[in-house]
Amino acid sequence: MLRIEDISKTFNPDTINEKKAIRGINLHLYKGDFVTVIGSNGAGKSTLMNLIAGGHPVDAGTISIDGNDVTKLSENERATFIGRVFQDPMAGTAPTMSIEENLSMAYQRGKKRGFRLALNRQLREFFQSSLEVLELNLENRLQSKVGLLSGGERQALSLLMATFTNPKLLLLDEHTAALDPKRAELITRLTEKIVKQNHLTTLMITHNMDQALRLGNRLLMMHQGEIVLELSEIEKAKMKSRDLIEAFARLKGEDFVDDRVALG
């Protein structure tokens, strides 16, 4: 489904601030794969995600989604294939617009937008039934401005908006990190449910080791712009978060102290 061939990215090349963010990464995701990505701050996780989504162009290498080479496409052109939820609950929704208007915009993902009225009864009914999945009673608040919702509700709505058109690829960028533990748990549960229901191919960044082990069927660990460890479903099942930290320590001994703090 997602095929990344030897991509690399350097920020501020040939300056004193040069940073090799991604160094020759290869990654293949098969249809229905749910891959969790962990790594210390600055490991290149978010950069990888931005390269896939088209926020930054790659320096070298190719990215293709479902057989379509998207390397040269802009962010909004790739949006046809990619649903995305950001860390910031404010980032995924338009606050001054209503829940139904936000959903309507997401429903039109990647389609040509014209002079058709964005809402009608049929769509509203579809949105209501979609919102029921979230179990937040948002289906009865279609006309509420999204800015009035709590962070958890907004993130749940963002998740729904990113997924309910069944994109080829779902990118989750630490989407539970900005929420309190209870809300984070809710969003994690919803993510599991929605991904399973729709068989979405998913790439999820997380800082939470337990979450990384619990969710998904593959796990990647990144360090200094490279994938340093990859676990299959069976290997993952045997791991505890302590083992993961130790595995990390063995691979990159020199940064162990720093990374225990970051991963810890």
Partner: peptide, 17 residues
């Protein structure tokens, strides 16, 4: 709606294509 979202949250509407 796309025009309104451009002024409200442009990153979001870009991510919707």
């Amino acid at each position: 709606l796309a025009v309104r979202a451009t002024g409200d949250n442009s990153a979001m509407i870009r991510s919707l294509g």
